[in-house]
């Protein structure tokens, strides 16, 4: 069931968006390859959520076109589960196209095993911890016929250690169920540890100011040299790195976006 997931395709063609007079995204173009994990990082308020809303089809861009193939599902920061449904009923939402009861039950069991939450089938979301809830959300999004996962800061409501654990968890789940992932985060560490490619967005109106490719194999340790190198590069791109010989410092808040996205490669 993993192979057919790789037909998915997601491309932004010259997309711009503004809210009234306020331009948020400016001429964004990029393609996400099938099975690829792309992270979008950028300063807060730069339009990351707008970008995801366009990707999910929730928002129509002011100009430009979105090309996509495959079923897209979003994993939210928190509260994306329906609180009136049990864990099992929530995950079953993802299995709605599976009408055969036996097959449905089988896939549901597999998903519970996958997220190690056997025994919590009949619990309600408010009875679970934050980390468990996010695991359920991911299972729901992975269920059935989904191809592309959009993740909107899925771990940012969790405490630091749970967040670290959830990264391992996500890598493990994706190794078993390959998906194309677009992951929006403000957490540079998270992007460096998880992504195949990182797009750094500029301040509003957002353009892609830099693109980094991280080739190191996953799962990656936080202390993996490739992760550290990527973090350094992203931090300095965001102007948050004071000691890398770059003239920009953490006090310099005024970085002009490079209109020509550069490309850095680390391995």
């Amino acid at each position: 069931m993993t192979d057919n997931k790789l037909k998915s395709r997601l491309a932004f063609n010259n997309i711009s968006h503004s809210y009234g007079e306020l331009p948020v995204l400016q001429n964004l173009s990029f393609t996400v390859n099938p099975g690829e994990f792309v992270a979008l990082v950028g300063p807060s308020g730069c339009g990351k959520t707008t970008l995801l809303n366009i990707l999910s089809g929730y928002l129509k861009p002011t100009s430009g076109t979105l090309e996509h193939q495959g079923v897209i599902r979003t994993v939210y920061q928190s509260d994306g589960l329906f609180p009136w449904l049990t864990v099992s009923e929530n995950i079953s939402m993802g299995l709605r196209p599976v009408t055969n009861t036996e097959e449905h039950g089988k896939q549901l069991r597999e998903l519970f095993e996958l997220i190690h939450l056997q025994g919590f089938e009949n619990h309600y979301p408010h009875e679970l911890s934050g980390g468990m809830r996010q695991r359920v959300e991911i299972a729901r999004a992975l269920a059935g016929d989904s191809d592309i996962l959009l993740m909107d800061e899925p771990f940012s409501a969790l405490d630091y250690q749970t967040r670290l654990r959830m990264r391992w968890e996500l890598v493990r789940l994706l190794a078993q169920r390959k998906r194309t992932v677009v992951f929006v985060t403000h957490d540079i560490e998270e992007a460096a540890q998880l992504a195949d490619r990182v797009f750094v967005l500029s301040k509003r109106p957002a353009v892609i100011s830099r693109e980094f490719v991280i080739n190191s194999a996953k799962p990656r340790n936080l202390t993996d040299p490739a992760v550290i190198a990527a973090m350094k590069a992203i931090l300095s791109q965001l102007g948050l790195q004071a000691w890398d010989g770059d003239t920009r410092t953490i006090f310099d808040d005024n970085i002009s976006p490079d209109t020509k996205p550069g490309k850095g490669e680390m391995s």
Binding site: S56, G57, Y58, I72, R73, T74, Y76, D79, G80, F82, M93, G94, R96
Partner: peptide
Amino acid sequence: IYFRVARDYN
């Protein structure tokens, strides 16, 4: 958010 999720799951 509930309506967005509902949209994702048809």
